[in-house]
Design a protein around this nucleic acid. Structure first.
Length: 237
DNA sequence: AAGCAGCGCAACCGCCATTGA
DNA sequence: TTCAATGGCGGTTGCGCTGCT
């Protein structure tokens, strides 16, 4: 069974928006706010799909959009965030006031990728292009009681035992608000939660987080200077 | 001036997540 | 619990602009 279309396509305009359509959309949202996108086009008298209206508003018409060229500082921020988050454009956009995910995505694909390549950096991995591939150990997450089966399978399948099997290891990434004080709880190694400082690589780090960077000026949105990633704070949309 | 290629960006498409009945 | 409706996201496309030959 196919998925139902997001809107009635027979009577909707496509392609570039006209000034009149923009004006209608702006006027409607000013009067009624961002409500139900599905019903908005009809209510606003637009022959557009709700999705299209949402995209137009978010990416182009919203009054708080910055637009214009990206600054060098924004460039570096995008690169840093991308190295941490990958292609999570909406999360990256949430860290750059006045910028949209679409804008950042386009900018990345047209400018930053090239910029990184010219620096000899792989834009996907953020590693030097000529750097030899790192030796990696493949870890199989196999429940303890299935290890024997796995071993038997490998033998029958002719797979060498180079893979390291770690039973029942849960590496759940904890998303938590920025910590206000140094961690005092020990790492729950056999359990579920790991908080690791990226700067000192220790479980109970003593890095000073709050107040350490504010006097330096500039951004420290991901606490990059302190070397600590706080993932929940990324999800600000 | 015309033709072409490359680039930048707005918009679309399809999928996944969330929500509510 | 299921399922349809809706919102949101990332990948991709297509068109207009610009620079080069």
């Amino acid at each position: 069974m196919g998925r139902s279309p997001c809107c009635e396509k027979a009577h909707t305009n496509k392609g570039a928006w006209t000034k009149e359509e923009d004006d209608r959309l702006i006027a409607y949202i000013r009067a009624h706010g961002e409500g139900c996108w599905r019903s908005l086009p009809k209510a606003a008298g637009l022959l557009r799909c709700g999705k299209s209206c949402r995209l137009r508003w978010i990416n182009y018409l919203r009054p708080d959009l910055k637009r214009g060229n990206f600054s060098e500082e924004e460039d570096e921020l995008i690169i840093k965030f991308h190295s941490l988050l990958g292609n999570k454009w909406s999360l990256i956009a949430g860290r750059l006031p006045g910028r949209t995910d679409n804008e950042i995505k386009n900018y990345w694909n047209t400018h930053i990728r090239r910029k990184l390549l010219s620096r000899g950096i792989d834009p996907t991995t953020h590693r030097p292009i000529n750097e030899p591939a790192q030796e990696t150990t493949t870890i199989s997450f196999v429940a303890a009681n299935t290890v024997k089966e796995e071993e038997e399978h490998k033998i029958t399948a002719g797979i060498s035992n180079k893979e390291e099997i770690i039973p029942d290891l849960n590496l759940e990434l904890r998303i938590s608000p920025p910590c206000q004080q140094p961690q005092t709880e020990p790492l729950k190694t056999g359990g579920r939660i790991c908080t690791v400082c990226f700067a000192c690589r220790e479980n109970q780090c003593s890095c000073v987080i709050n107040g350490s960077s504010s006097s330096n000026g500039g951004y420290d949105l991901l606490r990059l200077k302190a070397g600590v990633s706080e993932y929940r704070s990324l999800e600000m949309k």
